[in-house]
Design a protein around this nucleic acid. Structure first.
Length: 541
DNA sequence: AACGGCTCGC
DNA sequence: CTGCGAGCCGTTC
């Protein structure tokens, strides 16, 4: 529960609290990482033994819409937690934290006391449930609890941002945007707000009379989505092409280039929060700022990574798992052909195309490899023939033929998909390699759409979730294997970013690669690619 | 607050 | 209708 350095804190009480924290007593909280960060920020001892009711709730049922304290208390205990805001109304926190002995203080103390009681009560309810499933208990203890201090330290360290570089980018992008605006207004013969989908729709489809192909879902307004604009641009219309450029530039400028400098702390670094109880598949998420969606796909976007830099005398080392989900699919399905392909270290998409089209690997066209790549990923997500045809711009019948050819070459994958759906229907849930659970209640839904979504979740969750389990295990192992030599800063689903003293980088890269590749032996090798440089942009293999 | 749109990841 | 999850921005209501 919240720790206040001042409210009611006589020296004697503070000393006693610190003594308790550094002793071996079990510390119970809903979101231990948050409390650890508050404690260490104030120079207090951090507990070594702890229980986390937020993480318990998440491991028991990760698919819930929220594992926030109030929600879990209401669901599990039928209790309403008074929010800090409500306390503030009758007992302004400013008064609470700055004057001792007021009635406001009493209200605040009662509020904190109630929250502590509720966390303890939650533990009584959640822990026995966790104990009933040995695999879940291990996920909770060996993965999630062990990860808490690792993530806390990563958040505290943050990553250095080159603010002057972002300012420079902002200026040049601002000038480019102004020039684009000028041209858009001139070409369309009117000035309007380009960022307003409504105004843009009016200009494109009424004033300029371009053919409207799509309406938006909710409001039935003209859609101005990328698909629509690209279609128009392909017919030679100039304005849509300029709008697309404006969109990309404006998005990058507002979301990253202008936003990041505002989030830089006094230490010159941004300190994201890694949320351990949000994503239903077991993945981590990142917010404030989200550092898991920093652009990479286009060169213009990728430039932003040049602003993520190592501290003085250090390098950023990036290490990412190559094709980890397809490797997990090979392991779980035990498909001999897919296993063999990974064992001989082949280009997986090329090898798949060769099998599907019965053409030697060195005689394939780019389109054939692209088709195989689309289907390889499509299988992981339960993609339909319709979607494959859309993605590859081919008729649905041909997409279906491709998919049939794929399963003909990898028969055990078809088996795995069938069995996973069978399990979901019979038990209402699916699990990862390590037993992390995801409930699929809609698997029997009468609506084709809803049930289809559930089926895709059932297929994807074990694979994506196993990848998340492996990455978390690797991070825990790395915390130990790196010793004090290097420090993890970020993680992005299949990648870990580490800050390393310049002279140590090659040695540390070897330790990281070895640790990640041997974290849990599968039927196929795990491959890790590393790269390093002064910036995240340069830390590519 | 909801929506449309976009970014990233898989 | 047509793979999903997550976060953020600007506009609109």
């Amino acid at each position: 529960m919240p720790i206040s350095g001042r409210a009611g804190g006589s020296d004697a009480i503070e000393a006693e609290l610190k003594r308790i924290l550094s002793g071996g007593r079990l510390f119970v909280a809903h979101d231990v990482k948050l409390q650890m960060r508050r404690l260490s920020a104030n120079g207090w001892p951090v507990p070594k033994r702890y229980a986390d009711t937020m993480i318990m709730s998440y491991v028991i049922n990760p698919g819930l819409p929220s594992h926030a304290f109030g929600n879990v208390a209401r669901d599990r205990l039928k209790l309403d937690v008074v929010s800090r805001k409500d306390v503030s109304k009758t007992a302004p926190l400013f008064a609470v934290e700055h004057q001792v002995g007021s009635s406001a203080l009493a209200a605040y103390q009662q509020y904190l006391g109630e929250k502590s009681d509720i966390a303890m009560a939650l533990r009584e309810v959640l822990e026995p449930e966790l104990q009933r499933d040995p695999a879940l208990r291990k996920i909770y203890e060996d993965i999630e609890l062990s990860l808490i201090p690792v993530l806390a330290r990563m958040e505290e360290r943050g990553i250095r941002i080159d603010v002057p570089l972002l300012r420079e980018m902002s200026h040049s992008m601002g000038a480019q945007l102004a020039e684009l605006e000028r041209r858009i207004y001139a070409e369309s013969g009117t000035e309007f707000n380009i960022n307003s989908p409504q105004q843009l729709g009016h200009v494109l489809f009424e004033k300029l009379q371009y053919p409207a192909t799509k309406k938006t879902k909710g409001t039935k307004a003209y859609s101005t989505s990328v698909d629509v604009l690209e279609e128009l641009a392909s017919h030679g219309f100039v304005v849509p092409q300029l709008i697309l450029l404006h969109r990309e530039l404006h998005k990058l400028k507002s979301t990253y280039v202008d936003a990041l400098p505002q989030l830089v702390a006094r230490d010159g670094r941004v300190h994201t929060s890694f949320n351990q109880a949000v994503a239903a598949t077991g993945r981590l998420s990142s917010s404030d700022p989200n550092l898991q969606n920093i652009p990479i796909r286009t060169e213009l976007g990728r430039e932003i990574r040049k602003a993520f830099v190592a501290g003085e005398g250090k390098f950023l080392l990036g290490a990412d798992y190559s094709q980890v989900e397809l490797r997990i699919l090979a392991h779980i399905s035990q498909d001999e052909a897919l296993i063999e392909t990974f064992r001989r270290g082949a280009d997986i998409h090329r090898a798949t195309a060769s099998k599907m089209f019965n053409i030697p690997e060195d005689q394939l066209t780019a389109d054939q490899r692209r088709a195989a790549k689309t289907i390889n990923f499509g299988v992981l997500y339960g993609m339909s023939a319709f979607r494959v045809s859309n993605e590859l711009n081919i008729p649905t019948a041909q997409a279906k033929d491709f998919i049939d050819a794929y399963f003909g070459q990898y028969p055990k994958i078809q088996n795995y998909l069938d069995q996973t759906l069978e399990t979901a229907r019979a038990t209402g849930k699916v699990t990862t390699l390590f037993g992390r659970v995801r409930y699929i209640p809609e698997i029997h839904n009468r609506s084709f759409t809803v049930r289809g979504n559930a089926e895709r979740m059932a297929i994807n969750a074990p694979i994506q979730g196993t990848a998340a389990d492996l990455l978390k295990l690797a991070m825990i192992a790395l915390e130990k294997n790196l010793g004090g030599r290097a420090a993890m800063l970020l993680t992005v689903h299949d990648e870990i970013v580490i800050e390393v003293p310049e002279g140590d980088v090659e040695q540390v890269a070897e330790i990281v690669k070895e640790t990640m590749e041997t974290i849990y032996p599968l039927a196929v090798p795990l491959a890790v690619e590393t790269g390093w440089g002064r910036s995240w942009y340069d830390a590519k293999g």
